[in-house]
């Protein structure tokens, strides 16, 4: 069975399209800077706030830096951050959520108390607080956003675990003589993956946007290094003179999100055993 061996042709098409979009964005992020030579920081005042022109196919920004080069290099930053943040939040959330849901009792209570306290803050505000601790760097952003989004994953995972625990196949595993740990890894964890995947793909999108919001506040990827987010935010004062400076990074973010969501839906269906004929 192929990876995208889904039952309904409409879904398969969506999944393929999503994979195609996401794949090309990732490829550009990895290999783009190697294939297209040029320095994204190089200034060319002749191209300042200009639209497409010879030498600068997508025009220049407020300092006359090449927009295409900056988008390609920015893809690397944005995808990198989104990917690792999501992985971090999902891994942490899975561990805490399963622990809390499966062990119940005081472990659950203490973990959930912290978790609910974190959930009470808006994600971005929380990230700002963490940024103050970890500093404005890629790693800092990843940790801060990861911690900020983790409580949502914890909630989803714990809820799923709580409902799974009551299912008879989990009880059957206990009667069989499996230890709690075996039951957890063999029967509970795999059944949590479907809802978490959906959440992860949505989160991928949130993170790209959150990173741009942080950049807007001056806490994101420090300039002059480009990311889609900080390109979008620094372009704001020039929206009237050079709309392409807002439009192009915005388009990149939207198209990537579209791809991520389509791909996520397909992965969800693929992970659902009921969809396999």
């Amino acid at each position: 069975m192929s990876v995208l061996g889904l039952k309904m042709p409409a879904l398969r098409l969506n999944g393929l399209l999503g994979a195609l979009i996401l794949g090309s964005v990732v490829l550009i992020a990895i290999f783009g800077p190697l294939l297209v030579s040029g320095d994204p920081m190089a200034l060319d005042f002749a191209a300042r706030l200009k639209g497409p022109m010879s030498g600068h196919p997508l025009g220049g920004d407020e300092f006359g830096r090449d927009v295409m080069l900056r988008l390609i290099h920015g893809a690397r930053t944005s995808i990198w951050i989104a990917f690792f943040t999501t992985c971090f939040a999902v891994a942490g959330g899975l561990a805490i959520g399963i622990l809390a849901g499966f062990l119940r009792g005081w472990v659950d209570r203490v973990l959930m108390m912290f978790n609910d306290a974190l959930l009470a803050f808006p994600g971005l505000l929380l990230a700002l607080g963490f940024m103050a601790v970890f500093g404005a760097s890629r790693q800092g952003i990843i940790i801060a956003l990861g911690l900020a989004y983790m409580p949502v994953v914890v909630r989803v995972v714990r809820g799923t675990v709580l409902s799974l625990r009551e299912r008879e196949f989990v009880e059957a595993s206990r009667v069989m003589g499996n230890s709690e740990l075996t039951t957890m890894f063999r029967h509970i964890l795999p059944n949590c993956l479907a809802p978490v995947t959906v959440l992860a793909t949505t989160m991928f999108g949130w993170v790209i946007l959150a990173e741009s919001a942080l950049s807007f506040l001056g806490l994101g990827v420090p300039p002059p290094e480009p990311s889609w987010g900080n390109m979008l935010s620094t372009a704001r004062p020039y929206a009237g003179q050079a709309p392409h400076l807002i439009f192009l990074p915005g388009l990149c973010i939207s198209v990537t999100l579209l791809g991520v969501n389509m791909f996520g839906d397909a992965v969800r269906d693929w992970l659902d055993p009921k969809m396999q004929g």
């Binding site: 299912r167 008879e168 196949f169 009880e171 059957a172 595993s173 009667v175 069989m176 003589g177 499996n178 063999r186 029967h187 795999p190 059944n191 055993p273 009921k274």
Partner: peptide, 25 residues
């Protein structure tokens, strides 16, 4: 000592192939 549950829809792990289900014990 083993148990057979009422609802065969929820007593089997939806992600396990049935050979695995039977082999698990």
């Amino acid at each position: 000592m083993q148990i057979v549950f009422q609802d065969p829809y929820s007593s089997l792990d939806p992600r396990q192939r049935i050979e695995k289900v039977v082999a698990e014990p």
